[in-house]
């Protein structure tokens, strides 16, 4: 099955591992991720003001491009997912906003049908859970990660706002733990798994980011984690930068390892 795929700017630069293993693992599971042509940066963070139009057009262009191909849109970076999903929701529910956006879009060189949020948006983890199925993932595992204690770090962007993201129970999520189990590893539940790492405060107030991310990594390590997994390059940066006592990796790296995709690549 083919999907439109939105990698985002960080996956092209600092987070190549997140992107690379997402693509090759999807192929191993029978899903082809077709990169949206000429995608533009999502802007990293959603601006909730209803009169903020221009900053949301890049997301709308990606959503439209998937719609025109008749494909769902798959994201993997938590931040891109949050921005695109919230934009899609606004296009579905806020008519005044959608009308303004469509007016802007009608000025684009390429003429396209007005957009009203038709595209189905999946985060990669949702693709695994809802389309491929964790059972299929489990069957495809060649190197089960037996005995590995993995702490899922959700952070904010995958979950909130819950009414828009619809990703999982915002206070007691389980999708990443189910993913970890499907790989044969053992999930570690810890209190800070859905609290903020400090996000872009890394630029404005690094001491605050250090405090927030330190509390997360210590909570995970204190509950016995060998490794923390995340879908967010900025969470990873904040945790590593602020001396996480345990390694922090992207969830796609673990997936590729378990599926045996990493070895295949080395053998080439």
């Amino acid at each position: 099955m083919k999907f439109s795929y939105y990698p985002g700017c960080t996956l092209r630069t600092k987070a190549k591992e997140l992107d690379r293993w997402a693509r090759s693992s999807a192929l191993a599971l029978g899903a082809e991720l077709c990169e949206v042509e000429d995608w533009q940066c999502c802007g990293g963070v959603y601006v909730s003001a209803r009169d903020e139009i221009a900053t949301k057009l890049s997301s709308v262009r990606a959503l439209m491009s998937a719609r025109d191909k008749g494909q769902p849109l798959v994201t993997v970076c938590s931040a891109c997912h949050n921005v695109i999903k919230q934009t899609n929701h606004a296009m579905q529910t806020d008519k005044e906003f959608a009308d303004k956006v469509n007016l802007y879009m009608s000025q684009d060189k390429e003429k396209r049908e007005p957009y009203h949020g038709e595209t189905q948006v999946y985060h990669y983890l949702e693709l695994l859970r809802d389309v491929i199925g964790f059972d299929k993932v489990r069957e495809a595992v060649k190197n089960p990660l037996t005995g590995k204690k993995v702490a899922a770090y959700y952070g904010c962007l995958l979950l909130r706002p819950g009414s828009v993201m619809g990703f999982d129970d915002v206070e007691n999520p389980r999708i990443m733990e189910d993913f970890i189990r499907a790989l044969g590893a053992e999930p570690v539940i810890y209190p800070m798994r859905n609290e903020c790492c400090g996000g872009y405060m890394a630029t404005e107030d690094p001491a605050l980011a250090a405090k927030k991310s330190g509390a997360v990594s210590e909570s995970a390590a204190g509950h016995g984690a060998d490794v923390i997994v995340t879908a967010c390059p900025l969470c990873k940066y904040n945790l590593v930068k602020n001396q996480s006592p345990v390694p922090v990796v992207y969830f796609t790296e673990l997936l590729a390892e378990a599926l045996g995709v990493k070895e295949d690549t080395h053998a080439e």
Binding site: K14, C41, G44, G199, T203, P233, K236, K241
Partner: peptide, 26 residues
Amino acid sequence: MTADDIPAVLDDEMPQQALVSAMRKY
């Protein structure tokens, strides 16, 4: 925050995401 403020906060590992988010917010 402006582009001139960025070099002072930047390090080799900082993801683009942090910079675009900060610029969008500030």
